[in-house]
Design a protein around this nucleic acid. Structure first.
Lengths: 340, 340
DNA sequence: GTGAAAGCGCTAACAA
DNA sequence: TTGTTAGCGCTTTCAC
């Protein structure tokens, strides 16, 4: 049986209270007894039960993380690392779930995490969170920070990058290279706000510069971006030719990868016959045969800032609840648009 | 203030016990009162406090997951998905940490998860787990399942793939294509058992077939496989030429990606001037300009089986504690070795 | 500086 | 079928 605080107390010949004070380095306690308790604890291999602690102090030091999509391996891995490194230094642990784009699972996860008394929540919501989920969040008053995407239907804190600007950056660059006809490959998450923002940004440029464009939305059932966009692109091949498209803008690097496969199979040489620009700056970009030009997002920092914001909210419940932290995207010029 | 079971009980005009029974669908209870309680619970928006429950029943329904490396985005994402989907159906939640290859952090995580009373642990250990960590695990008697890698110094359950066979598969294939001189690019995790096993498997073939080979270990400080192997490969360029290497075997697909960048920069055409084979079958493989031939691992299933094994151990503490589940690798022939 | 006692929210003997 | 009571392991008020 695991030793409890009482065991430690008895061994050190003090009361539970005193033992507790010693363990938590509290004030009013004799240095001598403190040492004695600590030794007793050590010799018993005592470890406080965090469940009991949490129950008592009504603070669990656990934060819940809900991603909507783990297929996008690199993107969420980096965000998670940012969250993890920031929070682990402050004694928090993370409980992680993946909604896989399902609103039901998202709701379940929120409820489950809530039942576990998480101190806060960081999440990328599904496209349309269920009304139920939103109600739960609002009623529970658990501090929440949305990351990367955000819910339209709900007042919230948010950490993301400026997707409108990102879209502009990409479009401006294509314009600068002289492209007039561009296809925009949306990928499977075309309905999320982050992606529609990128599109809006690009379209602003397209219209101002009187460029032609059209979007490839695809109707594949694949959840995997690469597969989805590969199929979507294959279907769009004819249109590509008839509209004399010279540049493809992909809404993520994975989408770009899928699109490039279709393009290559149809004899296009990336960076020569056709320009391709991605989004995210995933870590594989520099390592492709034709290194991918893309718009970079600071993924790790996204996670870090979200964690920071959340912990601040947790500590200061009064902090105003509509903070938006918008980080800047950055154009990463490589070779897939023909320049080096 | 959140409603407690007592609030529900009062509203339904029964005792806490009865309310408890109703919530947990236990036997001996009148159908009428059960309904009344459930209604009361609903109207109060009652949600049981899992912390209190766990404390009481001494079972948390949380399992800890510790990965050693989240850079390898896709690989661990898939494993995690396998674990998550299997366990979430059974009411478990996952608490996730990343040791980042550091034994100190690994030990901290184990302790921390233990303090949180996890019911079990799934982990990829660092190369050499600290004696301390092993001692904690043994003393705590928490069921543990190692995944992908395993600790040499410790009796354990394990789920992985047959890396020896995987190495052979790759080497056999290169032999079949007529290669006589191959370079093996080890990557940053060259010391892990999974990688050394792959090498052993390959070497068995090399020796039997009297092929020449040498390993590229690299001395980069990068933790990222792609970067690491890119640098390692650059350094090895001269040797590659002097030894007339015609094939490169990479210990993971990320390593292959890094290596290919160096090769391409030096004018090699993958699949024509030089053959390249990877390992893992990461999801980007089919989407490279020259689709990568590789040895596939069933990542999702790895996670799933690990979760299954762990839950069985949790339920039946008596189950023998040295189960090894070894899944089979599979050669995925694409174009990077010249065949289609 | 130390300890007794109460209680966080839940479950489970046992008794009625 | 229902309720009383004790207790999981911890923290905290209050009194000494």
């Amino acid at each position: 049986m695991k030793p409890t605080l009482l065991d430690v107390a008895e061994l050190a010949k003090v009361s539970r209270t005193t033992a507790c004070r010693a363990m938590n380095n509290e004030g009013r306690i004799d240095e001598e007894t403190r040492k004695r308790v600590l030794e007793a604890a050590k010799s018993l291999n005592y470890q406080p039960n965090r469940l009991a602690q949490s129950l008592r102090v009504k603070q669990s030091f656990v934060i819940g993380v809900i991603f909507s999509n783990l297929f996008a391996g690199h993107f969420y891995s980096e965000i998670f690392r940012g969250i993890e490194e920031y929070t682990s230094g402050q004694n928090y642990n993370l409980i992680l779930g993946c909604s896989d784009g399902s609103v039901e699972k998202e709701t379940e996860l929120i409820e489950s995490f809530q039942a576990r008394q998480v101190d806060g929540l960081i999440m990328t919501p599904t496209n349309h969170m269920s009304a139920e989920a939103i109600e739960i969040l609002e009623k529970s008053r658990i501090p929440v920070v949305f990351i990367d995407r955000c819910s339209t239907d709900y007042e919230h804190d948010y950490v993301g990058t400026d997707n409108l600007l990102g879209g502009k950056l990409a479009a401006d660059y294509l314009k600068k290279l002289g492209h007039q006809n561009v296809a925009v490959c949306m990928g499977p998450d075309g309905e999320t706000m982050s992606v529609t923002d990128r599109l809006r940004g690009a379209v602003q440029v397209f219209e101002k510069e009187q460029m032609h464009y059209f979007t490839i939305t695809g109707k594949s059932k694949a959840r995997n971006s690469k597969e989805f966009s590969y199929e979507a692109m294959l279907e769009a091949m004819d249109t590509l030719e008839s509209k004399k498209v010279t540049a493809v803008m992909a809404m993520s690097d994975s989408v770009a990868l899928g699109a490039s496969r279709a393009l290559i199979e149809h004899g296009y040489r990336i960076g020569k016959d056709i320009a391709l620009i991605g989004y995210n700056n995933d870590d594989f970009c520099p390592y492709l045969t034709v290194p991918l030009t893309t718009v970079g997002q600071p993924k790790y920092e996204l996670g870090e800032r979200a964690a920071e914001l959340l912990l601040n909210k947790i500590r200061d419940k009064m902090s105003k609840s509509n903070t938006k932290i918008i980080l800047q995207p950055k154009l990463m010029i490589r070779q897939s648009c023909g320049e080096s």
